[in-house]
């Protein structure tokens, strides 16, 4: 009589796990992994989709060379947007942190306020935001007044750094729209700080100002990093981003090469942020 094969409990558990993982894995390979690898391939080719076939023509690094050294198209779009991002990211993170602290207070209608601040994330899409911005709803009303507008024109004019500052102010409402997720992360982070830490600080006679700098901010630092990364990625991949528009061309090879160059630029930028963050964090830990 043949010996009956029995799977060990461990194998069954592993198989179970693999089966649970399989939908995600399949989805990842089909909808992310394969397109990613294929886009690398496309970036070295000219691709045309003809009615009966896809026609490839190998061009090597031509598109990479053209984008980086043969044309100013990328730089014309990237540099001004990059300058805007440099202003917007700290503004968004600080705004989200302050609102999160505010929403953590025990105040009447707290739940409604929390919902209100998160609402834009739920119903806003790139097209909706574009619509608002094109209707001039992205700015702050009081800035449009003659006094402030005149002041900005006089002192910022159209200098290379003046323009992005003006652009940020003109679309300042975007900060609110960009901040929903960050507020939620900060709120969750704020709730991880034990109440006892605040109680003991109060007993020791610390003022709210000191409590913020000595307890809240240090405890929130991992969430600040998380939000920095999230905000940078969110801004660099936002549909109205001019570089994304440039990528959305009818030359798939060129677009793929540009997308990969842009990806590496974002990666380097994130690396620099993490480096600066770790230096600052290490310095403040030593001071404490």
């Amino acid at each position: 009589m043949a010996k009956k094969r029995v799977l060990t409990t461990r194998t069954v558990r592993n198989l179970e796990g693999s089966l649970f993982m399989a939908p995600w894995l399949l989805g990842f390979i089909m909808f992310l992994g394969f397109p990613l690898v294929f886009s690398v391939y496309m970036s070295f080719n000219t691709l045309k989709i003809l009615p009966n076939k896809m026609k490839y023509n190998f061009v090597g690094l031509k598109y990479y060379h053209e984008i980086l050294f043969g044309s100013s198209a990328l730089y014309d779009e990237l540099i001004p947007y990059f300058q805007e991002v440099i202003f917007m990211v700290p503004v968004i993170v600080i705004f989200a942190l302050l609102i999160a602290i505010f929403l953590n207070q025990k105040l009447p209608g707290r739940l409604v306020f929390r919902a209100l601040f998160f609402l834009p994330v739920i119903f806003s899409t790139g097209a909706v935001l574009q619509g608002f911005m094109s209707q001039g709803e992205g700015g702050l009303g009081f800035i449009q007044g003659d006094a402030i507008n005149g002041f900005m024109d006089t002192y910022l004019a159209d200098s290379s750094w003046g323009k992005p500052v003006k652009a940020v102010l003109e679309n300042f409402v975007m900060v609110l729209w960009y901040s929903g997720v960050q507020i939620l992360i900060f709120l969750a982070g704020r709730q991880t700080i034990p109440v006892s830490a605040y109680e003991s600080a109060r007993i020791d006679g610390a003022s709210p100002w000191e409590v913020f700098w000595k307890i809240t901010l240090p405890a929130m630092s991992p969430f600040i990093l998380l939000n920095l990364i999230y905000t940078v990625v969110d801004m660099f991949t936002f549909p109205s981003n001019p570089v994304i528009n440039l990528i959305n061309s009818d030359n798939y090879g060129y677009s793929s090469a540009l997308a990969w160059i842009y990806f590496i630029i974002i990666l380097v930028f994130l690396g620099i942020i993490m480096l600066i963050y770790s230096r600052v964090n290490r310095g403040s830990s030593r001071r404490r």
Binding site: M30, K53, K55, N57
Partner: peptide, 20 residues
Amino acid sequence: SIMILLAACGQTNQGASGND
């Protein structure tokens, strides 16, 4: 299995691709 599935999915294009 996944690779075979993907290869099969890509076959319609693959057959038609390449320099004509």
